[in-house]
């Protein structure tokens, strides 16, 4: 156990798997690996066709391989790294540990290549790969897992041809919602200080708090008046007219529950200034996200997002 003090996210258990994985840092992932094919013109042509790369440097009698193909010459392909391609037991063991713990998926995140000399048809590729580092457990949008960084030194006919540093995330896929269970918006936290607001929403009334000492309006609801400190209040029902004071468009990451199409596409979040002078954060509906503008007149509406939740939103006014 060398991983002193490594803690998982969200609880205080030690990450024993990380301690095991770290032991692989510095070990060989491939030793004297051999490319399955000599550098060759058909594979170069297929690559250029896929990439839409028409450079004359990669064609004709003096052709070189596109430098960015470096890794392709070392790939195991459909049959994988079969005997003789140099894959070490250490790398397979480390992957088996991760697979066994449920971290079964792989996605590449970083690739750093340096090209020392051009590869030409006929070159015989050999390579050595070392496991440079393993990250502590990380949670990403795809799921939770470990970043594994390897460095590969590529040789062509025995000469150094390039280096290739590669980082992957080996992860446990996040649970995806079934189609029958569409994503739901977060529930509002209702407490003594704001229960009246939500009671109003349930009756399709947008209630603004008013200080009974100084008559200052406030929204969102708060226990006391920011203007005079008064604790007593009553309410005024909003007339429903307002204008967009400011807005942002949310593109990424996708939160399907907020998007009108449920697919997580872009959606507009607006700060609406009510005719009464207070402002509220909400969604603008009735126009595409990219048609929302500052100053746009809007009026109050209520949107049932799912059977258990109804929210005040703002509809762009006709002809606005």
């Amino acid at each position: 156990m060398s991983g002193a003090g490594i803690e998982t996210f969200g609880n205080s258990e030690r990450d024993d798997l990380y301690a095991q994985l770290r032991a692989y840092e510095g070990r060989a992932a491939a030793t004297a690996g051999r490319g399955k094919d000599l550098v060759n013109q058909p594979m170069i042509r297929h690559w250029c066709e896929a990439m839409g790369d028409t450079s004359p440097a990669y064609r004709g009698p003096d052709a070189v391989a596109p430098p960015a193909m470096l890794q392709a010459w070392t790939m195991g392909g459909l049959s994988g790294h079969t005997d003789g391609t140099g894959r070490s037991a250490a790398y397979d063991e480390m992957f088996a540990l991760l697979d066994g713990a449920g971290y079964t998926s792989v996605v590449a995140t970083d690739c750093e290549q340096e090209y020392l000399r051009p590869l030409r048809p006929g070159d015989r590729i050999t390579f050595d790969t070392v496991i440079e580092s393993v990250s502590p457990r990380k949670t990403t949008k795809l799921g939770t897992g470990y970043f594994v960084t390897t460095r590969t030194d590529v040789h062509a006919d025995g000469e150094r041809a390039g280096t290739h540093r590669f980082r992957i995330l080996k992860y446990r896929p996040a649970q995806r919602k079934k189609d029958s269970e569409p994503a739901r918006r977060p529930r509002p936290v209702i407490n003594r200080d704001n229960a009246g607001f939500w009671a109003g929403v349930a009756e399709h009334r947008l209630l603004i708090q008013r200080c009974t000492d100084c008559a200052t309006l406030r929204l969102p609801w708060m226990p006391g008046c920011n203007a005079c400190g008064g604790a007593e209040w009553d309410t005024v029902e909003a007339g429903g007219e307002g204008t967009v004071f400011s807005h942002v468009v949310m593109h990424h990451p996708a939160f399907p529950a907020f998007a009108p199409d449920g697919e997580g596409g872009p959606y507009a979040v607006a700060l609406v200034e009510l005719a009464e002078g207070v402002r509220i954060v909400s969604n603008v509906i009735g126009v595409p996200y990219d048609k929302v503008r500052v100053g746009m007149p809007v009026h109050l509406d209520f949107l049932r997002t799912d059977p258990d939740l109804e929210l005040p939103v703002f509809r762009a006014s006709e002809g606005g």
Binding site: W47, M51, D53, P66, M69, Q113
Partner: peptide
Amino acid sequence: NILTTNGLVGRYLTD
């Protein structure tokens, strides 16, 4: 895949 992105970035530069 990342290799395609890599290839497209390379092509963008050499183009």
